[in-house]
Computed example of a mutant assay.
Amino acid sequence: MSIDTLGLREQKKRETRQAISDHATQLFLQRGFDRTTIADIAGAARVAKMTVTNYFPRKEDLALDHHEAFAAGLAEAVARRPPGESALGAVRRAYAHALEQRDPVIGFTGRDFARMITDSATLVARLRDLHDQREEALARLLAAESGERPAESREHSEPGEHPAESGERPSEDDAEGRVVVAQAVAAQLAAADRLLFRELQSRVLAGQDEDAVAAALTRTARHVFDLLEPAIGGYAVR
């Protein structure tokens, strides 16, 4: 099979996935998430129900189509930080950029879409779970950068697998302490991120235009991150 053929197949898959997502969004906005079935979406997209579930195993993921990017967002922002920047600095810079771009991942979804989410207990629960995943991914990254992994991973490690910076294997207390610190920092950053998301969504639901929302969140985010700076501004500086 030629490379061109493989490329065409991948393009066709992307187009099919996007078409399913677009039709699902239209139906969710018209009927509400809970009243729309997979069969409705398959019919609108002119594909089999199995095709829908192959691309989107969970119905919620049809509504929250950016779920993978959302769950990984904080960790990816920190992982890409340049030398001299802290974890807080990376999150702060990424959030400011997302505001400039009016990124739907941080809440710029439009009033109707935001209302559709808040009207569905299923989607509210899924969004809460995604925020938890977002925090957990960041905690794993910070723990890994400190030379440690969560306790459940360390239980299966070979002796000496995680040396300390000095070249000697850290004590169990030191290792666990670094993991807890990483989790604590991730929790603070994720809490700020979660609250900013809620504030942005509440303004969208209130009907404010995107420029007004971005301006208000720029001020609020600056204040929130300034308050965090004395506590964790020096943590995980690359």
Rank of each mutant, 00 (worst) to 15 (best):
L130P: 02
G147Q: 05
E10I: 12
N54F: 11
S171H: 11
K12S: 14
H23C: 13
R58F: 14
H223P: 03
H97A: 10
F33H: 01
R169Y: 14
A212Q: 10
V105E: 08
T37L: 05
E68R: 15
K12F: 15
R169D: 12
R14H: 12
A114W: 00
E100H: 13
L196H: 08
Y235W: 05
A143H: 00
P159Q: 13
Q101M: 14
I41K: 05
I38A: 01
A63V: 02
L99Y: 06
E155T: 08
D129N: 12
A45W: 06
R46A: 09
A96R: 15
S21T: 02
L27E: 04
A90T: 08
L62A: 09
Q11R: 12
G107F: 07
K59L: 08
S2V: 01
G84N: 03
A90I: 13
E210T: 04
T122W: 06
T220P: 14
A144Q: 08
L138M: 00
A125F: 02
R14E: 11
D4P: 05
D173T: 05
R46W: 05
L74Q: 00
D22K: 15
V237R: 12
I38T: 06
A236W: 13
L27I: 04
D226R: 11
A90G: 03
V224C: 01
G43N: 09
L195A: 06
D112S: 06
D103K: 04
G234C: 09
D103V: 00
D209Q: 09
A139S: 11
A114L: 01
M116C: 13
G107H: 00
T218G: 08
V224E: 06
G84P: 12
T25V: 06
V185P: 08
